[in-house]
Amino acid sequence: MTAALETTGLSKRYGRTWALRDCTLAVPHGRVAAVVGPNGAGKTTLMRLAVGLRRPTRGSVAVFGRAPRDHPASLARIGFVAQETPLYRDLTVADHLEMGRRLNGHAWDRPSARERLAKLSIPLDRRADELSGGQRAQVALTIALAKRPDLLVLDEPVASLDPLARRTFLSELMGEVAARELTVLLSSHLIADLEHRCDYLVILSDSSVQVLGDVDDLLATHSVLVGAADGTTPARGIVSSHATDRQRTLVVRSDADTPTPPGWVAEPISLEDLVLAYLSEPDAGVLPGPEGPS
């Protein structure tokens, strides 16, 4: 089965600067893929390339097997919410739903969109520039979901939401994924939000892919080792290392069966710790082997 989103050597240059370099990944169907990385690492560029808003400088991107920019029919299967959740300022919420209905034709689910907005207490006759940041994000997501897309691309969708709204948003997203075998590509600064929700991880650092893979696999093959500062350093793959005068904490990568070296205590690693470890060590990385991305 073709991957929901597949890129091959995808690169984008603006003037002299490379925003994304040689990105090769494949997100399987039905996954919730997280794209994380520091500002300027290329997250937004990758997402915009995925929805046809940018043209690749080199390489290719395909959504369900077709390049999104050249095939408006593919666009009908993609829902996108940009980082600033742009809406038409003078148009009301109801107008935006009408726009979605007219531009998306048969695949528009108006009843569920209205129901969703009613549940969130967002009035349909309010103009877009009178909505709060959180409400705009919810309206933008409603429009994207009402298309019944097969791929949902969300660029920092919860950045402007308060903690409760964030939780609600993400819970509903999980519900939608459950309901319809939806593939999600989502970027966020708040890695804690991604914990337990994302099952595929892309770490971008300095415009390149640093880490790529299944979250369960990554968490199974990494662990935190805590030991004395002057103890022997394990021979196996150290990703990052932090030391106080008494204690050292390592993030290591290894096979699941490798025993803990003596003098060290192993702890399971959280997604957040794993991401932070790699972000702090740009030279480390996890990329799929020659058999290709999983």
Partner: peptide, 17 residues
């Protein structure tokens, strides 16, 4: 509860459920 209900209430990936 359905997979969807659990995914939404616990706010986790449905594949986990």
């Amino acid at each position: 509860p359905t997979v969807r209900e659990v995914a939404e209430s616990v706010s986790i990936n449905p594949n986990t459920v």
